[in-house]
Amino acid sequence: MGGAPSIGSIFAERVVVGVGDMAVSNNANVTISTYALGSCVGVVAIDSAVQVGGMLHIMLPDSTLTPEKAARQPSMFADTGMRAFLKALYGLKADRRRLRLFLAGGANVLSGSDFFKIGERNIVAVRAFIQRERLSVISEELGGLNNRTLHFKIKEGTVEMKLPTGLKTIRMV
């Protein structure tokens, strides 16, 4: 190992997606990351034919909660966020039929109570949208007791998912 760095590594870029935010790119050297998906749901998408990828970090299921906030930050909510995310991907020439999605997050407390299960509601809202749009989900890591951090490398089509105790790699292509 060692020696001169590759051209790709010189131009490698890291984009961090915050809570209620998203990022899309057609630069294959980009790594998109999001931290601490708890009850939030992260949606990763790739169209490898055109090397377009993106990540969305949804916090809440329904934008009708606060339409003003949804207008300013649509990515915060599942309904407006998914619409904005797809629009941004299609804007970079991604094709719905080629898109592959990975979903992560949606953690929930132990209680059997139905109240405040935002994780579950986020999952339901995202899945409903995906079903309506007939999108293809290739893998899911949903629910559980831990927060998750995602690092998505567009060029490799892989997501490194970090849990407090370890790492898992998801291949999207």
């Binding site: 708890g38 009850s39 209680s111 831990n146």
Partner: peptide, 28 residues
């Protein structure tokens, strides 16, 4: 109790097994 629950939903309850908590419907 509810605040801790709510903050968890913001993804700010970092650390291992951070979601291993009982939610009390009584509190709500």
């Amino acid at each position: 109790h509810l605040s801790i629950w709510t903050v968890a939903s913001l993804g700010l309850n970092y650390g291992k097994d951070a979601w291993a908590m009982e939610a009390s419907p009584y509190a709500m």
